[in-house]
Every structure is written in structure tokens, then in C-alpha cells.
């Protein structure tokens, strides 16, 4: 659900601009080596552009820099790299600062301005997650001083490990009101932990970057979704324009959307999360 909409957007732009899109990704989201291999394949292949959602903030710097040096127009989507934008390098990023603020406001709404929060899924490999973590924490501290972050834990793409992290957090903080999970495996770990003991835990979960929208689980309050469809569309469109001589804007930020039980069935959310990439949006 996170990246297939991007595929749809990229295909739609490709059809419009008469570009063929090669789409591929590592089987694991933390398989950085496989993603580097894909980037190098594009770099040394007969490709005119590259759209990349980096799995790692640092390790992809050199491959992307080499791709740009070889003349491949590159658009980084989702989470940023440290390389500055250039004539052939542009960014279309999720507004993770807004995502952090969105989560903070949702926590405040749930807790009526007072309570305890745990943060899990902090993953420095993805810059966007760190940005949203800092934004969430600072916004909460500035605007809702009675809501306290009682514990923060690092995250990984391993769901059982994330479940163990959630169990430890809930064991040491029995009255924890909300868990903010910054990545989806952490969301799944937290939901599993709470749902495994029905009626015992009342902790709510706010998550990011969903693979699905499992609102049948009572503990899941809301998820914050990136507009990856628009990212994919704009990225391919920008590459097509660049190939025709139009410069690419260095940075475009797209705001995320808060999905709750109230709006999950709306047309906007449906369009945002549609995994059908075979037709135009």
C-alpha cells in the first residue's frame, strides 16, 4: 500500500509522456545492497531517468552520485539523501515534519492534552523517520506540555522484534496511553501485543507508512499516509520535462494524509491507497 500507489502514479505519467517504466524493488525494505544493485543497473543500463525511494540515508549517496554523474536524471522520492539537488537531481519528499505534527495533534486529541506516550520505530537509516520523530517530539513539547514521552525505542523491519519492543514498553509502562509507531513493522508489533490481551490494554496506536489499513483492530487509532501516488507521477513527469529541456525543481514537498476510521472509506483515501497501478488514476 505504501509503494504500489507510487507505481501507479509513475505508470500514469509514463503513459502520458510516452516513457517506458521499469519498476523493481528489493524483497526486504532493509536490503540496502539489493537496492544499490538496482541503482547501479539503471546507472549502467540504457535508462534516461531514475526514481528512487532510498532505503538508507547514507549508503545510497555514492551510487546516486555516480548515476547523476553519468547523466541519469534522478528524482529521490519519500525520504531525502544528503546530496544537494542539482541540474539532474531533484527531490519529491514526504513532508515528514508535518507528519510529526499531525501525529502530535492526534495524540493531543486522543488524550485531551494530558497523558503518556511511547515512541517506537525510530530508524536512523531513513532520514524521513528521524525528521518526523524530532518534529513530533518538539511539537508535543511546545504545545502540549502535559503529554510526556515516557520511552523511545529504535525500530527495525523485523516484526517479531518490534513486537518484543512493544511488549517491553508496555510491561514497563502499564498505563501508557498512546504508542506512536514511526514505521509499519513497529505498528504491527504494537497492535499484535495489545490485541493479544483483549480488554487488558487500552493503549492506542498511531502509525505511519501503512502496508494495510487494519482498522478492525481496536487499538489502531489512525495512520499517516504518504502521497506516494503523486510522488511517482510527478517524478516521472519531471524527468520527462527535463529530457525536453525544462529544468527540474530542486525540491517538492507533499503533505501526508491522516487516515482514521472516519475517512478510511472516502474517495480521497481510496485514491491515495489504491494498489491498482494498471490504469490511470
Amino acid at each position: 500500500m505504501l509503494w504500489e500507489p507510487e507505481h501507479g502514479g509513475a505508470e500514469a505519467a509514463g503513459r502520458k509522456d510516452d516513457l517506458w517504466v521499469y519498476w523493481n524493488a528489493p524483497t526486504r525494505e532493509d536490503d540496502t545492497a539489493a537496492q544499490i544493485a538496482l541503482v547501479e543497473r539503471v546507472t549502467h543500463g540504457n535508462y534516461q531517468g531514475l526514481v528512487l525511494a532510498p532505503d538508507q540515508a547514507l549508503a545510497l549517496m555514492t551510487p546516486v552520485r555516480r548515476a547523476v554523474e553519468r547523466g541519469v536524471c534522478t528524482v529521490i522520492v519519500g525520504s531525502p539523501l544528503s546530496i544537494p539537488a542539482s541540474d539532474r537531481l531533484s527531490y519529491i519528499l514526504n513532508d515528514d515534519e508535518e507528519g510529526g505534527r499531525m501525529a502530535a495533534r492526534r495524540v493531543a486529541l486522543l488524550l485531551h492534552g494530558k497523558g503518556s506516550v511511547g515512541v517506537i520505530g525510530i530508524n536512523p537509516n531513513i532520514s524521513g523517520i528521524m525528521i518526523r520523530a524530532r518534529s513530533f517530539e518538539s511539537y508535543l513539547a511546545e504545545n502540549y506540555p502535559d503529554i510526556h514521552i515516557v520511552e523511545k525505542r529504535m525500530g527495525s523491519f523485523n516484526v517479531p522484534h518490534e513486537q518484543q519492543v512493544a511488549e517491553e514498553m508496555l510491561r514497563s509502562n502499564e498505563n501508557l496511553d498512546v504508542i506512536v509507531a514511526l514505521m509499519w513493522p513497529s505498528v504491527r508489533g504494537a497492535i499484535s501485543t495489545i490485541e493479544n490481551e483483549p480488554g487488558k490494554l487500552s493503549t492506542k496506536v498511531i502509525g505511519f507508512d501503512p502496508d494495510a489499513l487494519p482498522f478492525e483492530a481496536n487499538s489502531l487509532d489512525s495512520v499517516i499516509v504518504q502521497n506516494t501516488r503523486e510522488m511517482g507521477y510527478q517524478a516521472v513527469d519531471m524527468i520527462a520535462a527535463r529530457l525536453h529541456g525544462t529544468p527540474m525543481p530542486p525540491l517538492v514537498k507533499l503533505g501526508p494524509v491522516l487516515v482514521t476510521r472516519e475517512n478510511v472509506n472516502s474517495k480521497e483515501v481510496g485514491n491515495l491507497t489504491s494498489m491498482d497501478w494498471s490504469k490511470s488514476p
Partner: peptide
């Protein structure tokens, strides 16, 4: 230290 609050 990486988990120390960045807000304060």
C-alpha cells in the same frame, strides 16, 4: 544518547 529527547 541517541534516544535522549531532542525537544529539551
Amino acid at each position: 544518547l541517541r534516544l535522549v529527547s531532542s525537544a529539551k
